[in-house]
Simulated assay, not measured.
Amino acid sequence: MASAPQTTLPLFYNDLMPLNSRDHVNYRVKRVDGLTWLVNQHAVPLTSDEFIQAQRDYPIVFSSGEGGVPLALMGLNEGVNAFVGDDGKLTEDVYVPAYARRYPYLLARLTPEAEELSLCFDPTSKAIGEFKDGDPLFDSEGKPGQPIQSALDFCEQFEQAGARTQALIEELNKHDLLMDGEIAITANANPEKPYIYRGFKMVNEEKLRDLDAETAKTWVANGIMAIIFAHLFSLQLMSNVFSRQMAQGKVPEGQPEPAA
């Protein structure tokens, strides 16, 4: 069984393998106990479709450098997830980004020249394998079963949301609205030495206020403005996440590492 060719594997994935009836006809998928792939992951990619829901639980920022990928911050420090325990279970009922729910499946090109995307999976996942229990991926005739169709539908919807997210980023960059972010959080134990978090981008509110009327009107109509405000409102949750880390003893001493 050959793995799908890749140079850099996406976050969470240890390997990628094309799903096919020849090699995986006896494979089954079963429910796993906990989102173990989220353990120690502090920043999870987010689509623009999810901003309204995610902003209730997490700060939403954009990655620094080129691309400006939206990220839901489940922790403010590298290797810290304040919402997922070491067993992979959520510590409370919060929104789980689609990027994390998509795992272990992924749509990928099997060759650089391929125009179509193929459904792949991470063979190291404990959710898929030649198990005695679980739902079969293929029927007795080798045709894709419901688990494959559900995974394919979800991944296709994710790809479409990803295209809309890219369009959003292009609009923000077109109007030069993303700036380097910085958040200072003061801990009660040491109020004279705040924790400074950098390494991410955020929307520049001053430039947003100066946006021309025609663009602003268009963004209100197509929903971009609501997405931007969800991002800005979510930044108030930085201190909430910090407090969760403090309560869990997961705030490193001294200057913290970048938030994203």
Results as ranks from 00 to 15, higher is better:
88 G>K: 05
232 L>T: 13
253 E>I: 02
239 S>Y: 00
77 N>K: 07
9 L>H: 05
14 N>E: 15
60 I>N: 00
29 V>I: 15
244 R>Q: 09
242 F>W: 06
32 V>N: 01
13 Y>Q: 09
247 A>E: 01
235 L>W: 07
46 L>Q: 05
82 A>K: 09
105 Y>I: 05
259 A>E: 05
90 L>Q: 08
32 V>A: 04
44 V>A: 08
256 P>K: 06
114 A>L: 07
139 D>F: 03
87 D>T: 13
112 P>H: 07
48 S>D: 12
235 L>D: 03
169 I>E: 00
187 A>K: 01
112 P>K: 10
217 K>Q: 15
74 M>Q: 11
121 F>Q: 07
181 G>W: 12
231 H>T: 12
130 E>D: 11
121 F>Y: 14
206 E>N: 12
134 G>F: 09
14 N>W: 11
58 Y>N: 07
103 Y>R: 08
102 R>M: 12
16 L>C: 03
152 L>Q: 13
105 Y>K: 06
211 L>D: 09
260 A>S: 15
258 P>S: 04
124 T>N: 11
3 S>K: 12
39 V>K: 11
175 H>D: 04
193 K>V: 15
23 D>W: 07
86 D>E: 08
252 P>Q: 09
18 P>D: 05
71 L>T: 00
104 P>W: 11
35 L>P: 01
242 F>Q: 02
229 F>V: 12
51 F>Y: 13
171 E>V: 15
159 E>D: 14
185 I>S: 07
41 Q>S: 05
39 V>S: 03
151 A>N: 08
32 V>F: 02
170 E>M: 11
224 I>N: 09
118 S>C: 09
51 F>N: 03
72 A>V: 00
138 F>Y: 13
245 Q>Y: 10
158 F>Q: 15
49 D>R: 15
204 N>T: 12
15 D>V: 09
83 F>Y: 13
44 V>R: 07
18 P>F: 12
183 I>Q: 11
177 L>C: 02
44 V>K: 07
134 G>Y: 02
39 V>D: 02
221 A>W: 10
2 A>N: 14
126 K>V: 10
143 K>D: 11
191 P>W: 03
66 E>I: 10
204 N>V: 10
78 E>K: 14
